[in-house]
């Protein structure tokens, strides 16, 4: 077993070179490079954490803005609704007034027409009476051969007309 047979003669050289090369490894790799690698990893995880935090903040802000926008939007909509209602009410009032005016005018015209009609009828009635009186006088004169005075005939006609 060379490990034991050669122990005495090789111990010092093995120990020496092991310490040399392990020492080199320790100082170059362990002390020199490992902290750099850890630093890189730390920096990366920090950056990732920061990026996530930034994204979260941006998202929160976006949410806030959307909320604000929604409130504003709701206000605007309410205002628009109010405007529409007002305009509608105003228009309704105006049209009502117009209709009322038109109605009044129509009523007046109707009344005038009625009056005219009544006047015309009265006039026509008068004329019919006169004609009927004349006709009655003529008929009596022709059939009975008696002359009836105008007032008498008129009276008779009036009576007959009243009786319908």
């Amino acid at each position: 077993m060379p490990q034991i047979d050669q122990l005495a003669e090789t111990f010092s050289s093995q120990a020496f070179w092991l310490l040399v090369f392990f020492g080199i490894s320790f100082f170059v790799v362990g002390r020199g490079m490992v902290p750099k690698v850890s630093g890189t990893m730390e920096r990366r995880s920090k950056q990732i954490a920061d990026d996530i935090a930034a994204a979260q903040a941006a998202r929160d802000q976006a949410d806030q803005e959307e909320e604000a926008w929604r409130v504003r939007e709701n206000e605007n909509r309410a205002r628009a609704q109010a405007l529409i209602a007002e305009a509608k009410a105003e228009a309704a009032a105006k049209s009502e007034k117009k209709i009322a005016a038109a109605q009044k005018r129509l009523d007046k015209k109707l009344e005038e027409a009625d009056q005219e009609l009544a006047a015309a009828r009265a006039q026509a009635m008068g004329e019919i009476e006169a004609v009927a009186t004349d006709a009655a006088q003529d008929i009596v004169a022709r059939i009975a051969g008696i002359t009836v005075t105008k007032p008498a005939a008129g009276k008779a006609v009036k009576e007959a007309m009243a009786h319908g």
Partner: peptide, 9 residues
């Protein structure tokens, strides 16, 4: 002290 550069080293 012997520090021979061996195959081990």
């Amino acid at each position: 002290v012997n520090i021979a550069f061996t195959n081990s080293a």
